[in-house]
Design a protein around this nucleic acid. Sequence first.
DNA 1: TTCATGATTGAATATTATTCAAGAAATATA
DNA 2: TATATTTCTTGAATAATATTCAATCATGAA
Lengths: 150, 150
Amino acid sequence: MKDIRRRLIELFKNGYCTPRIARIARELQEPSTTIHYNIKRMEIEGLTKAYKAVFDYKKIGEGFCTYVLISLSPDEYGNPERVGRELVRFPQIESIDIITGDWEMLLKVRTKDIEEYYEFVKKALSKKGIVKTKSLSSLRQLKTEFVKVD
Amino acid sequence: MKDIRRRLIELFKNGYCTPRIARIARELQEPSTTIHYNIKRMEIEGLTKAYKAVFDYKKIGEGFCTYVLISLSPDEYGNPERVGRELVRFPQIESIDIITGDWEMLLKVRTKDIEEYYEFVKKALSKKGIVKTKSLSSLRQLKTEFVKVD
DNA sequence: TTCATGATTGAATATTATTCAAGAAATATA
DNA sequence: TATATTTCTTGAATAATATTCAATCATGAA
């Protein structure tokens, strides 16, 4: 058998979907050409960044979700984006924010389990500039990416 | 003019998109019927929960993003899901997690600005059971919903 | 009012999703 | 091991959908 699923999941994580114009037109009771026109305008103007899938992450082997608070070394305070941009490429990272408060950065990370999370931490969070981290693991998700789950 | 955009944004937040089968088939060099079959199976088995859009949230008037740590009263420790389920319905909430550590719950909230956030806090976080909160505002997002932004 | 720009829409066309039936591959059962 | 059963793959045909185009309408500026 071909492992189509694994490849589909990768594609769906950040794209390869598209609006259902005909269905939207029925829902909003407007002509499909009007819907089409508006969707294209929103894309051109950059309101929409991507069309993607939301998964039952447990079922795709990414059931372990952790929020990571990050403290940067003083010489990185002026440029937290540098560290952030290095992290963007890690597929386990769902979101990266530079934040107010006692910590400089907040990540949301998805892995299979705690072992895989440990591997991620060793690889990704040993960057120059990161001096301290604190992990908050999710015991249960009720909503993610605006979608009600569970 | 009809305000189509506002309505499209609402629909796109948690659905009304669909996989681009033909495009995926070209990308993966597989017959489109094989792709179709696998996508449907993933939907039936519940691997995929929704197909939706990711926005430039600043451009759709939701530029202010805040993570909210929540502490529950001792009599809610045994049932944090009760509070969580009450919060699910708020459209400003992107994610809800029950977490390990000093706090019981973590929300990700999107509003237009700090004023609208304040309105949200008054309405949503005055629930019985919530005894303390701490807001970490996002100064800059580098990645959200697995999609690189900015 | 007139003009320019952007939004809405129906009709025609191009592209795509879906169904169906047949066969191949994997798995279960004897 | 043989055989049955289930799941997966695939091409051909059809149904549904997206897209293009040109005309019309609405809006705001000059």
